[in-house]
Amino acid sequence: MFNTITIYPGYNKANQRENYECLTLKKGSVYSIVGPTGSGKSQFFEDIELLTDTDGVTKRIIKSNEGIPKVVHLSQKMNFMVEMSVQEFITVHASCLKIDDSKSHCEQVLKLANNTSGEPILPSDYLTKLSGGQSRSLMIANIAMNPTSDIVLLDEIENAGIDRLKVLEILLDANKMVLIITHDPLLALLSDYRIVFKNGGITHFLKQTLEEKQLNKQLLQVDKKLNSIRHSLRNGLEIKGGQFNEQKAVME
């Protein structure tokens, strides 16, 4: 049965070999991928997606412990191409995934995709007419509700109109291996491990510390506060000084 993938070192942009023997990633864990833009995070996802065997630009070798895991991927460049309504497409997709109750599947996907304050995606909307944020939201919801996947690769879910914590919860309940590229400290600290990139290569592989876990609880509060301010701004409200001070207090 598929349980782990093992990564053997490749080369960074300066053609230096990455400095680790091998890294093993497990099912049921969350790995956050952090590093400056252009540091090779998305390349890493493409390596995992095709289980490269030195045949990518990084020359990494990626092996699964057994069989070929089913990898699902949300990159930053993906688009919906097909001219179909949301409901029609989710129904077709459900039949390909052998999900019997496509009606309730469709409802669940839309509920998840719509569970933040974005303007709702309607079943009758056309995929190609959705906004950028809505499309990403729906793509993530489709991935989260896919029962057939083993490995989930998510590239920056913070810029979609979706509740990223809810998505993580669903994926972990389903015991997937989850990798998230993120610039969001909250998401980075929610994961069990961090993989750090620089200049095209992996530089650190870190386990989350207890101290970080504590900090994360505080960050969750800050996040709530930021969300409420975001909500106010979106609704044309003025932000009062008190709100800001309250937020500052939490950070301290």
């Binding site: 990159s75 993906m78 191409m81 077709v92 390909c96 793509m139 489709n142």
Partner: peptide, 28 residues
């Protein structure tokens, strides 16, 4: 890398229906 994951899944499924014996290999 340019189309949504779910569309790729539908695409692969339909190809498998047309030709169940063929190997599907993605490449870049």
């Amino acid at each position: 890398d340019l189309v949504s994951q779910s569309e790729r899944e539908v695409f692969n499924y339909r190809l498998k229906e047309l030709n169940p014996c063929a190997v599907l290999q993605e490449a870049n």
